[in-house]
């Protein structure tokens, strides 16, 4: 039998996502795709998937998945308290999920979007070249619901227990600094307004979704108070300023065009930061040049793709557990020669 995942229950926005749908923008079809590229890339790399293999993006939690076949998986991005049989799943380390295990994602402990990749990738039907779900138009694979079965492709992974050397991601609650490149309609805003934009703290509103991150804080108005423009193109990260003066940062499900003036765009690496913000979180913008922003992105890519994959075995030990010889442990992971399993020391007593 081929490997698969059966959805037992699913939160509000548990979605299959890949790099998105390109080539149909001219027909008003949004690119959509993953929100947090860093977590997406890492989860796929740790299980030796291709860069664009489809993953499950779990928003907020409340999701239970039943795995069939022995699968190698990796979770990256938010910590949504994922566990199997009460044993917490590691983040940013690949491990084996044995046949017929149930993985539960509970609620956000840090960040808000978790990325689950399975060696071999999710192999549902592609729609217009992508499996990504665009929520508003309904194009893509519908949000996961109880009873859905997701086929898993053939894996390139023969080992697990890998993590990325020298990698740490901070999803803490401090004010996040977001780099912004001045944009299409920046000339509609006076210097005073641009100064406010770059000096005040903004708070993420609870009206935010995959289409737009709505901000509350000091209002920004155009020089002539007119906030209607002839609709022009927008992308993930465009910051539009509607008539009420509260910035909206467009997220991956953004429409292709918009009729509000755009003061700027978020630099690529800061999109991953935005993807993990929840209502009430605070951000502050700073000015960045396109070249500097690109440099930061290239550096981040090199960390994700060039840093060595290591098996971080902390305590050397030798236990025989059935047929497997355990060569070491690290917190709740047990390492064998080739694999890593969830492991509870408590179970032995």
């Amino acid at each position: 039998m081929k490997n698969s995942i059966k959805v037992i229950s699913s939160g509000p926005m548990t979605l299959l996502q890949d790099l998105g749908r390109r080539g149909f923008e001219e027909y008003g079809v949004s690119v959509s795709g993953i929100a947090d590229r860093e977590a997406f890339n890492i989860s796929n790399r740790l299980v030796f998937n291709k860069e664009d293999d489809t993953v499950i993006e779990i928003f907020f939690g409340d999701t239970s998945l039943n795995f069939f076949g022995n699968n190698i998986v990796a979770i990256s991005g938010a910590d949504l308290g994922a566990e199997i049989n009460g044993i917490k799943c590691p983040i940013n380390t690949s491990f084996v999920v044995p046949n017929d295990s149930i993985m539960n994602f509970h609620y956000p402990l840090e960040g808000i979007r978790s990325y689950l990749s399975v060696a071999g990738g999710m192999k549902t039907k592609k729609i217009l070249g992508s499996r990504s779900m665009h929520v508003m138009s309904g194009i893509g694979n519908a949000p996961l619901k109880s009873g859905d079965i997701i086929p898993i492709g053939l894996s390139n992974s023969i080992k697990s227990g890998f993590s990325l050397k020298n990698y740490h991601r901070d999803l803490g609650v401090e004010i996040k600094k977001i780099g912004v490149i001045l944009g299409q309609q920046v000339d509609r805003f006076g210097e005073d307004m641009i100064r406010i934009f770059f000096s005040k703290t903004y708070v993420v509103s609870d009206k935010s979704d995959r289409q737009g991150l709505r901000l509350e804080g000091e209002t920004i108005l155009t020089k002539n108070k007119d906030h209607d423009i002839i609709s022009d193109p927008v992308v993930y990260g465009s910051i539009q300023i509607p008539g009420n003066g509260f910035p909206i940062i467009l997220m991956p499900d953004t429409q292709t065009t918009g009729g509000y003036p755009k003061i700027g765009n978020v630099g690529k690496i800061y999109l991953d930061v935005l993807a993990q913000l929840k209502p009430g979180d605070k951000i502050k913008f700073f000015l960045i040049t396109p070249d500097k922003s690109r440099e930061e992105y290239l550096y981040k890519r090199s960390v994700i793709y060039k840093n060595e994959l290591i098996r971080d075995v902390k305590i050397e030990t030798c236990l025989v557990n059935g047929e497997d010889t355990i060569i070491g442990v690290n917190n709740n992971i047990a390492f064998t020669e080739d694999h890593a399993f969830l492991f509870s020391l408590l179970e032995e007593h």
Binding site: G183, G237, K262, N265, P290
Partner: peptide, 11 residues
């Protein structure tokens, strides 16, 4: 015009 670090807009 600029639209971030990886897009430009020709008006």
């Amino acid at each position: 015009l600029l639209s971030g670090d990886s897009a430009i807009v020709i008006q």
